[in-house]
Write a protein that binds this DNA or RNA. Structure first.
Lengths: 240, 240
DNA sequence: AAGTGGTCTAGACCACGGC
DNA sequence: CCGTGGTCTAGACCACTTC
């Protein structure tokens, strides 16, 4: 039997896509059996190896679970742990309405530690963006972002009071954010931060320092976040 | 050509194993080319699909990287982020000599919040283990572990002052630790903790609450850790 | 053009699980 | 026993990269 069509998407991907769509539409619920390799091969008129490839690939993606001698079943929906999300995305996923006040946007060249974190030479110019974040009118975090001014000076005039920094970067600057290395510790609130967050001086805050990389491994930004510990909880999952 | 031997390990796994060993022995360094599918098929006297399976599987495991039209190459060694490690393992991997002092081991039945974390009924009996951890003679963490007394009462007499709790669990109780969900925040040191850790009262501490599961998804233990923020830094990597 | 990985066939037998 | 996934063959053509 000849190949159905040249220059089109591979058969195993078509089959995969159909199954995914059925799952996403709720036609197959977690635990339900997915058609067997032989069934798929017959229905889609492909060889066993091809049907198998479709299912194996779905398994690799975590969409299904295969049990020898038994069958292939829809996997429990994955909870995404440790995902790199913007503040806006995090709040959205908890259906809270986020707010954010830009305290400062300017170009600086005198915070040398920041330049090191961004892998820039010590006197490079850097965009500094300071924002107070709140939910339901209550401030809970002070976030300071640093980016190379050479690349991102346009941010000085971007509408950051109403749009996510992540979204702006990904759309206007065509950078694909990939991953972040974070350092987490606890630190007492300095007077200004305490005032801004509405907590007593020296109140313990969660401090998170992120270096965020593009998918290609290039440093894009450095973020220093101070979080009210009574309002913010970092949740992570780690594996052995 | 017939199958070489029944009841033995699959050909693709044998081929995989050989390649892995060469890599681990340093015979192939990161970036080096691995033999092509056709090469492997010829040398090991298997079909192309089988040789292919070996390489595809190695790629899934992250050991190699495949580039269409170019070849298969040894991947850069993975740095393990966010790994669930015992204190002993963490210190060992930084070549520091860990110390640990058992402050308390007893069975309790009155901390109801703990029972909830362990998914036990509210009045179940629970082993409570409190340890002060230090490096180079300096205390830096207070860790309290809780485990079901029904399963782990033998820990009351285990030599925990000199052996890792993880190791004991995995060897003596045959539990395979799998993953942990953690909540991280900042909290002021209470008087007793401050005293034990040698810091001022109300000093900000990093608080990590872990629920640790077996590979089968069963809750094994709950750990409450308080870390001196000046000596301990949680490092995580998250992906988008 | 030569070599690589990617897709695919039309079968085969094996190992496992449930009935 | 039957159906499932797991391994495997001996080829084929395609798409891509490098020279």
């Amino acid at each position: 039997m000849p190949v159905k069509s040249r220059n089109s998407i591979p058969a195993y991907q078509r089959i995969q896509g159909k199954i995914r769509k059925i799952i996403e539409a709720g036609g197959l619920r977690p635990g339900d059996a997915v058609p067997s390799e032989r069934e798929l091969a017959r229905v889609h008129n492909v060889s066993l190896m091809t049907a198998r490839h479709a299912l194996a690939s779905l398994e690799k993606q975590g969409a299904v679970e295969r049990r020898r001698g038994v069958g292939t079943f829809v996997a429990a929906p994955k909870i995404h742990f440790n995902k790199l999300m913007s503040y806006t995305e995090q709040m959205g996923s908890r259906s809270l309405i986020p707010g954010s006040k830009v305290l400062l946007v300017k170009i600086i060249d005198d915070e040398h530690e920041v330049n090191a974190r961004l892998a820039l030479s010590p006197n490079s110019r850097v965009v500094k963006l300071e924002r107070l974040r709140h939910v339901s009118g209550e401030p809970f975090a002070l976030e300071t972002c640093y980016l190379s001014a050479a690349q991102f000076s346009g941010l000085l005039t971007a509408p950051l009071h109403r749009e996510s920094l992540f979204a702006t970067l990904e759309r206007d600057y065509n950078v694909e954010l990939g991953y972040a290395d974070e350092e987490v510790d606890a630190t007492p609130a300095d007077p200004r931060t305490a005032e801004l967050l509405g907590v007593p001086k020296r109140e313990p805050l969660l401090r998170i320092r992120q270096v965020i990389y593009s998918t290609k491994g290039v440093v894009i930004l450095y973020v220093l976040g101070l979080y009210r510990s009574d309002r913010h909880n970092l949740v992570i999952r780690r594996f052995r």
